[in-house]
């Protein structure tokens, strides 16, 4: 699924795979800003409703704005409600920097790789 950002010719790419029963990996790439965040939110909230383990792989994210951070915060709440395990793969500076700067790193379960998140 690709969403075009009309302001800056930027896109967000989302792809979902299920490597094992009850395990979902959502790979996100591009810029997660106020235009693209609602698409990410929809994918996360819908996916977390099933419970299990949900990994958000943000390796390909080049920008994570406050709208994207808000989506992750809400997703953490939804995961708690549905007794799902939400894990975020954050390796790129574009993702780790805003998470550190806002102190949200201590709210989310952060991992370097998808393999580590699933271990």
């Amino acid at each position: 699924m690709t969403v075009q950002d009309p302001r800056a010719d930027q896109t967000i790419e989302l792809s979902v795979r299920q490597p094992a029963p009850g395990v979902t990996v959502l790979a996100v790439s591009g810029e997660v800003d106020m235009v693209s965040a609602p698409t990410l939110r929809e994918a996360l909230v819908n996916g977390l409703g099933d419970g299990g383990t949900f990994v958000v792989d943000m390796t390909g994210v080049t920008f994570l704005g406050s709208a994207g951070l808000a989506v992750l915060v809400e997703a953490a709440r939804v995961a708690q409600q549905h007794e799902a395990a939400l894990k975020v793969v954050a390796k790129a500076r574009a993702v780790t920097r805003p998470l550190e700067a806002t102190g949200l790193g201590e709210v989310l379960s952060l991992h370097q790789t998808v393999e580590e998140a699933l271990a």
Binding site: V73, E100, A101, T102, G103, L104, E106, V107
Partner: peptide
């Protein structure tokens, strides 16, 4: 300094 979380999170 250690940055606290935003308001409304925890």
């Amino acid at each position: 300094s250690k940055v606290g979380v935003p308001l409304g999170v925890l």
